[in-house]
């Protein structure tokens, strides 16, 4: 998981993981996020605190770079 980036979502049980080694930094996920929590900064996808872990972004990602997990991993 070293190349991933995890954000604890607003409800504190789910986390959005960005697998940076897969991400094509295209912004598809940004356009569907109902919370406006995602922002693409060149080759870096930033996940904001308003993320609820709903998983819509993970579903539409053309590459499968996003994953919502239930447990907190260290």
């Amino acid at each position: 998981m070293s190349k991933s980036f995890r954000v604890l979502c607003a409800d504190c049980t789910r986390m959005l993981q960005v697998h940076r080694e897969i991400c094509g930094y295209c912004g598809c996920c940004v356009s569907v996020c109902p919370e406006g929590a995602l922002e693409l900064i060149d080759a870096y996808l930033e996940v904001g605190e308003s993320c609820t872990g709903c998983g819509i972004c993970a579903k539409v990602c053309p590459l499968g770079a996003l994953e919502v997990t239930d447990e907190v991993q260290v």
Binding site: G27, C28, V30, S31, V32, C33, P34, G36, E39, L40, I56, K59, V60, C61, P62, L63
Partner: peptide, 26 residues
């Protein structure tokens, strides 16, 4: 600002694309 359309969102305009109407593309 393209498909991401964040600027308008910051101005209070909902630009969210419905899941069924985003063409996820490769």
């Amino acid at each position: 600002d393209g498909v991401e359309s964040k600027f308008s969102r910051w101005c209070g305009i909902d630009t969210t694309v419905p899941v069924r109407e985003i063409m996820t593309s490769a």
